[in-house]
Every structure is written in structure tokens, then in C-alpha cells.
Design a protein around this nucleic acid. Structure first.
Lengths: 217, 217, 217, 217
DNA sequence: CATGAATGAGAGTTCATTCAT
DNA sequence: GATGAATGAACTCTCATTCAT
């Protein structure tokens, strides 16, 4: 509680040089963390600023100060969702050896990411259901980042002759992206599905899809 | 109770002279219709019983009387979702000629149904995000009805020799079901995607999947 | 439930000659009994007509029909309180042999009556606290019936020379009446006092009062 | 907190310029005063927090803030009743010269106190009628404070030889306490009796009781 | 900068009652 | 005559937010 002055923030201890420096950023981050957690648990509308502040161990008033209110907190979270999606698209694993391994890896990666970001994803989906603007941004992240990147990678395989020339890779990439999100977010996060079962489904799909993409003799 | 006297009331229009009174079933239906609409639009938590009653053209208190409150209204909707899913599983189109046509038809059928039931689906998804019990029931409906039926139909095709013997059809059916729901509910309903685009994706997937399922020489 | 037609009313079976005769009076009585019980238990304001009707096994609407509403039910109870007080004043035990025995008997009688009528007394007191008109009628019953009767009996003892001539028997009778009601209603009914303890107090007071009333040499 | 700055606030008059704000203790006191008044007037159940806040000239929400709701306000009042009873028992007038004067003084003191605390007493009695726990606490205050103190004083008179040795002074003290409360609260406060008449009754009782307590030759 | 005090709006629910069957 | 349906009013309480210290 009272070791120095920045002790409350367990992780990003960073440099607390000045007597009260950087508290502002740490406070904002603590509020966002708490909000993500509370919003995910209760839904945005049912969540209260009191609980958010309480979970962050901070005064309720700071939400007003730093985010202009509950809505501002949400906006910041939605923004961070978009940013993380972009960041993630830039850090994909290297291309796999075979097409089947590649599809499996992409699906698996997507499922894993949905799980890691499950709180944020729940918050954003919760709002997307009622706020078209949020839905638009969520769709953009899905299509612009995930599907686009996926398509690029499939094009590479086509260049190697592993995929039939007459297929609409854009549509196929979108289908696979939708499947990945469906498996990762809906089945695993929302429906609390068994991870092993998801893996089986994912592998079966990868095998069939790879088979279907291959140029037929 | 008996035929005649306002028995239909499909769209609670005041088509029987006086203010639509003294018809318990019609009243309940009107409230459920209004609730589905309002809950889908605003989300359950943000929706108010006042607006539900207003949209139904009925007194707010009747929600308490017939459903025991706002929560009872929701419960009735969630129940009706499950019931409709079951009913739907019993009224599928006949098997298609080719495997590709079959997969395309099933995906298309699922997408269409998601669109027809979009309000109810939004309401249930909205709750599934915060209430594990609702999530469980939603998952059950998806797997028990959709995927199971799909698997049966694929088995028929396998019996005809159109599908390789060593494939895990259960996992594949689940994957296709997830894809269908993803395309129908997420892409079309939530993300407001273009119907034609969804169709293209759906057809591309059907073609690739059918190709991949076929016994390889 | 269905033995004949008047089976529901256990006590006043009386003559149920006609097919539905006397049901009206029995219904009113059943409602009053239930109301007395519910009002005493919860207080008038917190009691609901629903519970009253439920406890009587009758339709809520009959309260409106027969008593004009919840307030009418109360009015009927307050009236019956006054009537019972009067009736009681007319059926006192015969004069005791000694003055001490007489005072003890009167106090004891009052305490017993408070206990028998405890529900009704609670209802009336509950209203007397907030409604001056009810308070007036309750005071009238106390003074006009109890104290007046008590004074008469003390006068008889004075005529026999058992009470000093210069005492204000009216004031003394009122004091004893107040004591009796205090012991019977407050101590026993409201404060749930032990009956034996009340008896001891009552006997001690009777002895001291009788001693003090006796003409001093 | 400290002296100066609106420390008194005896009658929440806006005597410190701005609208009586930012003074927690004064706010709580004003709410309690208003609640006592409103609850006494209407009864707890019929009273509304709106009227309490209105009479205090404060926002309704502060009742939630400081007392956790309407029930908390009541609890605070019931507690204060117990505390005041105790405090009062510690500040009795000195022993009178004669036994008769002593009994008269005690009765008179009790009646006076009932009158001063009439609002609070009505509130507590109102609840004691329906809440056994409140009744228990009220009985405790009556017996533990009033009767016990009275018995002590009578013992002193017995030690002086003014009271017969064989009398049960505990029972007699309880009887006199009940009489005092009956005269003060029931007759005067509830039944709105005439103060002079109460005095007459009280004096007559004191005379008779004193006579009866005296050792008989 | 940070915090306790204060506030207005509004939600769900309960209740006694009136309306028609 | 009796019963279910319907209704408007009101209440307590919660919440996000603004005001001052």
C-alpha cells in the first residue's frame, strides 16, 4: 500500500521518477482495465461507473475527468479494439509449408486471439448489437485486417500453384475469416465450448478446404 | 378462447371496434412482439418496459401481470427462440442433387433464417454475452438442431459415395453450421453486410467444401 | 371443499336452506375476519387487498362490492371494535366480595379481554396513531364503557363504607382503566410480556390500591 | 467537523448564506428531524421519502446516501428512541419529601416526557405494532430504564419506613411505570386527552397508591 | 488535482381500483 | 352476482453526473 508512491500499479511500474509523474497515464490504464472487465461481465448498460471505479481502486470521479463519462470509457475501449486488431494483423506467423497447415494455422491463430481478447471482444460485440457505428468499425476490423491479410497469404499459395486459378480468393478468405471468428468468439468465448473440440473442427475444416482449393485434375 | 371474436390479432390492429381488450392471448402476443422489437433495438438493459408497452399500445402493468416483469418477458423470448429453432430444424428443404448444391442450400437456408429471425437472435445474443445460462441454451439450439441435421444430410451423401470415407462428418457439420451462423447473423444482421456479397462468399465456400469432401483419387 | 354449498364457512353453518342464501353475510364476515388478521399482522397501510382476499379465499373484487374498498373494510372493523366494547361492558362478572378482589377482577378481566380482542385492538390502535377520528372513538370506548362501568362498581363499594368518602372516584376509575389497558394491550399484546408476570403486577396493584382506597382511621 | 462553520444547525435554517450544503452532520440531522415528523404524522408505511426530503428542504437521494433508504431512516429513529430513554433515566429529579409527592412527581415526569417525545414515541409504537423486534426494544427501554429507576426510588422510601415491608416493589414499580406510560402516551398523545384531566387522575392515583403502600397498623 | 456532497431524471414494480364480460 | 382484464398513479431506489471544497 505504501511502498514508495507508485506501488499500486503492479505491472507497468516503469519509472516513477518525479513525485507524482505518470500517475495520470497509469490511472487511465487502470480505469480502462477495470471498465473492460466490468463491461464484459455485465454488459455496458448494466455496468455501473461505481463498480468500474471500485474495481480499479480509484475514485468514481476520475472517469468523468479522464474520459468524460461512461460513454467515453466505452469509446476508448472500442478504439483500442480496432488498434489491437491492426497491430495483430502485422504480427502474423510465417507462412506454413503446406496449404492445409496454413489454413489450420490461420484459423488456430484467430481462435487463440479471440480467446486472449475475449473481454474486449465481448464489450465491442455487446455494443455492435445496438450501435451501428460500432458494428461498422467491428466489421471493418474483421474485413480490412483479418480477411485481407488472409487473402494475401492464399494468393502466395496460388502463385506456387497450390490453389486453382479460377477461385474467388477474396470471397474464400472472407469465408475463412468468418469461420475463424465464429469458432473463436462464438463457440469458445460466448458458448463456452471445449477447446479440444474447437481444434478438431478447425482441423477438419482446414483439411477439407485445402482439398477443395487444390487445382483439380 | 374460441374462434371468431378477434381470434387472429396478427398485428394488434384495432380491427374489432373497441380498444383491443379482454383478449388475453392477443395481449400477450402483442407484448412479446413489442418486447422483441424494443429489446433488439436498444438491448435488454437499456430497453424500458414503458417503451415496450407503448409500442404494443398497451398498459405497462400488463407486463407485470402476464410475464411477472421485464425479466419474464425476456425469458419468454429466449424460450420462443429455442422453440423456433427446433421447429425450423423439422422443416428443411429436400436434399439437393449434388453435394455442392446441398451445402450451398444449407448455408443459404441458414442465412435466410438468421435474417428472418434477426430481432429475436439479437435479443438472445445480447443476453448470451452476459448470462451463461442463455448462452448454454443458445449453443444447444445451434448444435442440437442445426449441426445435427446437417450431419445427417451429409451422411446421406457419403452413403452415395459423394464424400470421402475417412472424414469426421460431425466436426465438418459443426464447422459448416458455425460458418452459416457467422455469415447469417454476424455478417448480415450485426455488421449489416451486403446480401449479394454474402451469397458470393457462401457459394465460394460451398464449392470449395464440396470439392474437398469428394473422395480423392 | 364441496360438501354441500356452505361448507367453506366452518363456524356459522346456520341454515343454508336456499341454494345461495346467506352467502352474502358469510362472505362479508369472512372478509372482515381476514382483514382483521392481515391488518393486525402488517398494519393497515402495508396490508394489501390481495392478501386479505387471498386469506379469505375470495375474490379481491368483493372487497369493493361489499365495503367500497380497503378503507371501508377498515371502517367496518373500527365500528365493530366500538360495538364489542359496548357489548362487553354489559357482560361484566358480578361484584366481588372484597374491594381488593374487585379491583383485581376488573384488571384481570380487562387484560383478558385485550388478549381475546388483540387483533382488532392492534388494527384500531394502528389507525388511532395517525387518524384523530379513530383515536377519538377509541378514547370514547375506553372512557365511556370501561371507566364508567368501573366507577359505578367502586361507588357501590363506597356505599358499603369500603372506600373513603373524599376520593375522586371518577379519576380513580380512569386511572385503573388506563392501567388495565396498559397491562393488557401494551405489556401483553404489543410487548409480548409474560402472562404470569402481568398477573403478579396486577395483583400487587390491586392490593395497594384497595389499601389506599380504604377509609383511613 | 470543528466548531465554527454552521456547527449548530439546530433548526436547519439557512443561516450560513448559501443553500445549506456540504455539512454532512447537519444534513443527517435535518433528515432525521423531518422523518420523525412525517412518520409520526402519517405512519411509516404511508409516509413517503419525498415528503421527508421535502420537509427537510433536501434532496430525496440523500436519504439513500446517508441512511441506505427509508428503512435505515426508521432504524436510526428507533435507535435514537432507545438512547433518549436511557439518557432520560439518568437525569431524574431529586427524591421528593413524601411518598405521595414522589409518586406524583414520577408519574408527572413520565407524562411530561411522553409529551416532549411524542413524535418519536408515535413512530416507534407504530412499528412496534407490526415488528416484534422493535416491540422488544421498546419494552426493554420501558422496563430497563423507567421501572428499574422507579423501583430504586421506592426502595429508598421503604428504607425510611414509609412503605410496608412485605410488598413486591418490583411489581409495583412496573405497574406505576405502565400507568405513567398509559397516561402520558395513550391518554395524552394518542387520545389527545386534556392535560388538566390527566393531572387530576395522576394526583388521585398518587394519593391512593401512597396510602396503600404505607405500612398498615 | 482529487474527493465528498448533492442532484435530477427515470426505471421497475406494486397497488387499489374501474371496466366489461 | 361475480370474476378476470385493464389502468393510472405513486413509490422507492439506482445511476451518471455536476458542484464545491
Amino acid at each position: 500500500m505504501n511502498e514508495g508512491e507508485c506501488s499500486a500499479h503492479a505491472d507497468h511500474a516503469a519509472d516513477c521518477g518525479g513525485p507524482r509523474r505518470r500517475d495520470k497515464e497509469a490511472t487511465k490504464r487502470a480505469l480502462l482495465d477495470a471498465a473492460r472487465s466490468v463491461f464484459a461481465e455485465r454488459g455496458f448498460d448494466a455496468a455501473t461507473t461505481r463498480e468500474v471505479a471500485g474495481r480499479a481502486g480509484l475514485n468514481e470521479q476520475l472517469i468523468q475527468r479522464y474520459f468524460g463519462g461512461k460513454a467515453g470509457l466505452l469509446e476508448a475501449l472500442v478504439e483500442s479494439y480496432g488498434r489491437e486488431e491492426e497491430a495483430d494483423a502485422a504480427s502474423l506467423p510465417p507462412l506454413a509449408e503446406t496449404l492445409e497447415a496454413e489454413i489450420e494455422a490461420m484459423l488456430s491463430h484467430e481462435v487463440g486471439r479471440c480467446w486472449e481478447r475475449r473481454e474486449l471482444a465481448k464489450v465491442v460485440m455487446d455494443r455492435a448489437l445496438v450501435d451501428p457505428e460500432v458494428a461498422r468499425r467491428m466489421a471493418e476490423a474483421a474485413e480490412g485486417c483479418r480477411a485481407a491479410r488472409l487473402q494475401e497469404r492464399l494468393e502466395t499459395f496460388r502463385a506456387r500453384g497450390a490453389i486453382a486459378a479460377d477461385l474467388d480468393l477474396c470471397a474464400i478468405a472472407q469465408g475463412i475469416a468468418t469461420l475463424g471468428f465464429g469458432l473463436g468468439f462464438l463457440d469458445r468465448v460466448v458458448f463456452d465450448g471445449c477447446p479440444r473440440r474447437t481444434d478438431e473442427i478447425l482441423r477438419a475444416q482446414a483439411r477439407v478446404l485445402a482439398g477443395g482449393l487444390r487445382p483439380q485434375p
